[in-house]
């Protein structure tokens, strides 16, 4: 039983950053942006969250800094891809590299360390204890004592779902991706919609980054996003941006991650660490097989 609870908790904590950045990716996906900069936004967010938390001794300011860090990357993305019309893919790759460089450079400049920075003065984002629910066996062990950002991710899923499908802005967002010219001629600037979607994406990636550095650990290490932005991109593509679908896929990746930790006793850790990436390939495989069948039925 404890193993099972541990597995579920491991799944939730591994799924949270992927879910948050994938929700951000979904917003830009609907707006028709080929956005691969989630990785960079997350990494920058993780670094600045530690910076804010360390200097102000306050996790809330840390979280705010995390969001600002991700917004910095989004701002440059907007400058290059929306204003200067540089290819989105080139901008994304350039910015991901920029984030790696910027964070390692600042790590040495500000904290005078290489590799990783940790300090008792960094305050982590608190866990939320639910007074009555925590007494309930099993359910209490899972729902209570989760990190604040896990709850933010949960609420964000519902919000994004509502936002995309039930509001005027959501309609315009989808129109921007579906037929940009049509939207422009109806008097709504698609560039403006794209800009807003990128900024919102950065806020979500900022939370994801903050969770990485102030959630389950309290440290920043070089390149600590470790491909999670790419996994979240895969999640977005798998379900064509649907927020609820993204939540399910993220949990699946989280499960692969959590399972890996348990299998470490049996297999070398190098193999168990591959699991989330293999799970991504497997998910893509089933998605493609399914698509193929659908096409055949249509024909």
């Amino acid at each position: 039983m404890t193993i099972f609870i541990g597995l579920i908790n491991g799944m939730i904590s591994a799924a949270t950053p992927i879910l948050l950045s994938a929700l951000g990716g979904a917003l830009t996906y609907y707006a028709g942006i080929f956005n691969i900069a989630m990785e960079g936004m997350m990494l920058s967010g993780a670094f600045f969250a530690v910076l804010g938390s360390y200097y102000f001794g306050n996790w809330l300011i840390g979280m705010l800094f995390g969001i600002l860090g991700a917004l910095l990357i989004a701002g440059i993305f907007i400058l290059f891809s929306v204003v200067l019309k540089v290819d989105e893919f080139v901008t994304g790759v350039g910015l991901n590299m920029f984030s790696v460089g910027l964070t390692t450079y600042l790590l040495r400049q500000i904290f005078k360390v290489k590799g990783a920075f940790t300090d008792p003065g960094i305050y982590s984002v608190p866990k939320i204890k639910l007074p009555f629910i925590e007494k309930i066996p099993f359910i209490g062990d899972i729902i209570s004592d989760q990190n604040l950002i896990v709850w933010i991710a949960f609420i964000a899923t519902l919000l994004v779902n509502y936002f995309v499908f039930k509001t005027q802005f959501g309609l315009r967002l989808r129109a921007a991706g579906y037929n940009r010219i049509c939207l422009d001629t109806s008097g709504v600037s698609s560039d403006k919609i794209k800009t807003v979607s990128l900024l919102l994406c950065a806020v979500l990636c900022g939370f994801a980054g903050t969770y990485l550095s102030l959630g389950y650990v309290t440290l920043f290490s070089e390149n600590m996003s470790a491909g999670r932005g790419w996994i979240s991109l895969a999640a977005v593509i798998l379900v064509s941006g649907n927020p609820i679908g993204i939540a399910l896929v993220s949990l699946l990746f989280g499960l692969a991650d959590g399972l890996g930790l348990y299998l470490q006793h049996i297999f070398p850790s190098q193999f168990t660490s591959m699991l989330p990436y293999i799970a991504t390939l497997a998910a893509l495989f089933f998605y493609s097989i399914n698509n193929k069948k659908k096409m055949e039925v249509k024909l």
């Binding site: 540089v86 080139v90 590299m97």
Partner: peptide, 17 residues
């Protein structure tokens, strides 16, 4: 710090393109 060069490379790519 030598890490500045990683930043510079990324900036070169973005600005040149």
């Amino acid at each position: 710090p030598s890490e500045l060069i990683t930043v510079l490379q990324a900036v070169i790519v973005l600005v040149v393109v």
